[in-house]
Design a protein around this nucleic acid. Structure first.
Length: 201
DNA sequence: GGTGGGATTAGCT
DNA sequence: GCTAATCCCACCA
């Protein structure tokens, strides 16, 4: 499998959020490779998006968001979970895509050991997938086309639905969440989400 | 089936 | 001091 190039991430952030669905995230660990298919993402934009961490300028925490496209942005949330993002668009603009859910593909036993829960619940949320994949603050600011943590291309062009983003108060009405409909690893698969609209890539 | 609270840390006001 | 792009468990129906 081929790694996704910088050009893939240089595109419009909403397009990248859609295009990442069906692609693969892989981590090479001493215990072996872990890999998952991306089934849910959210876009965070530089304009009119107060929910975006970059919206109030560059700080030590968010400076990775202002790096070149294809850089990872990993941060700690609620004091105990990490969230994994990919920087998108032109360097210095401060946009990114949050990866919210994966379908486990490889190293499932290892992921289950790290999460200690049922197979269905090991990677179906942004904090969960970081725990399962062994992603932490050491990965913040690293390029995702080289090193141990990689984003890999895939032929698949899955159907896509969009909805409002999850867990935010600011700009809560924006339709910037994208997911593969019917995939059981989507984070709110069992719940209902308002304002759904179906479209296909 | 659904809801409410606690865990735990860094960054902001 | 308060809040956050979260998760899990206890409890109720």
């Amino acid at each position: 499998m081929k790694v996704l190039s910088e050009d893939f991430f240089l595109d419009d952030t909403i397009q990248v959020a859609r295009n990442l669905l069906g692609k693969y995230l892989m981590h090479r660990l001493p215990e072996g490779e872990v890999m998952g298919k991306i089934v849910e993402t959210e876009a965070y934009l530089s304009k009119d998006d107060p929910a975006c961490h970059a919206s109030r300028g560059k700080t030590r925490r968010n400076e990775a968001m202002f790096g070149p496209p294809g850089t990872s942005y990993v941060y700690l949330i609620y004091g105990m979970y990490y969230c994994f993002n990919v920087v998108t668009g032109e360097e210095g603009v401060g946009e990114a895509v949050l990866v919210r859910a994966l379908e486990p593909v490889k190293g499932i036993d290892q992921m289950r050991r790290r999460r200690g829960t049922s197979p269905q619940n090991i990677t179906n949320g942004p904090g969960k997938l970081c725990r399962a994949m062994g992603i932490n603050k050491e990965h913040n600011g690293k390029r995702l086309n080289q090193g141990n943590l990689l984003l890999l291309d895939a032929e698949e062009k899955p159907p896509v639905e969009k909805s409002t983003r999850i867990g935010i108060k600011a700009a809560a009405e924006k339709m910037l969440r994208f997911y593969i409909p019917g995939n059981p690893y989507v984070s709110d698969f069992k719940k209902s989400t308002k304002k759904r609209e179906v479209f296909f890539i």
